[in-house]
């Protein structure tokens, strides 16, 4: 079987969603980290499907996440780039993809993620403000406590 065919088969492993988002081209193994980043846990009302380690023509292996009933604003979409810079987010309405977004990490992450430093003032009051200093490997600095974090520390 060709990689393309395996990829299609992998994607079909979970049935199409009616309304929500399909996050594709997620770095293999990073799907759980993305759910954590989006704050999706057992309390989320919609059905969440994760398919991990699907053969991918572009990336070797990839993960896919399908979230029924999820609406995502641009800032939330771009947050995904923190753990999976090549991911795409497909907005699904009535079983059809109505919009495709490539995630893009903004230079400034204001109110998007929390500072991982537990004693940083931004975890007590105000809006967390972090700056992307380097895309690859990822280096993000908190503008308050000044600490620099790697991808592993942010996810």
């Amino acid at each position: 079987m060709t990689t393309d065919k395996k990829e299609r088969e992998g994607e079909m492993r979970v049935k199409k969603i009616e309304n929500g988002v399909v996050i594709d081209h997620v770095n293999a193994g990073k799907a759980p980290a993305i759910l954590k980043l989006l704050g999706i846990d057992s309390t989320f009302p919609g059905t969440v499907s994760i398919i991990m380690n699907i053969p991918s023509a572009k990336f070797g292996l990839k993960d896919i996440i399908k979230i029924e009933g999820k609406v995502m604003a641009e800032a939330e979409i771009n947050k995904i780039a923190l753990v999976s810079p090549h991911a795409t987010v497909n907005i699904v309405k009535d079983y059809h993809v109505v919009k495709k977004h490539a995630v893009k990490l903004p230079e400034k992450l204001e109110g998007i993620i929390r500072c991982p430093n537990a004693i940083c003032i931004s975890n007590r009051e105000g809006t967390p403000r972090l700056r992307v200093e380097q895309q690859s490997p990822l280096k993000v600095r908190c503008e308050y406590c000044e600490r620099v974090f790697t991808e592993e520390q942010l996810a």
């Binding site: 500072c115 430093n117 004693i119 940083c120 003032i121 931004s122 007590r124 009051e125 105000g126 908190c142 503008e143 308050y144 406590c145 000044e146 600490r147």
Partner: peptide, 23 residues
Amino acid sequence: PNEGSARRAAESSDVPFINAGDG
């Protein structure tokens, strides 16, 4: 005691702010 408190306080202040230790 909180790290980054100096930046936060300085942003709130209209007069010069001097950090005497933040965490």
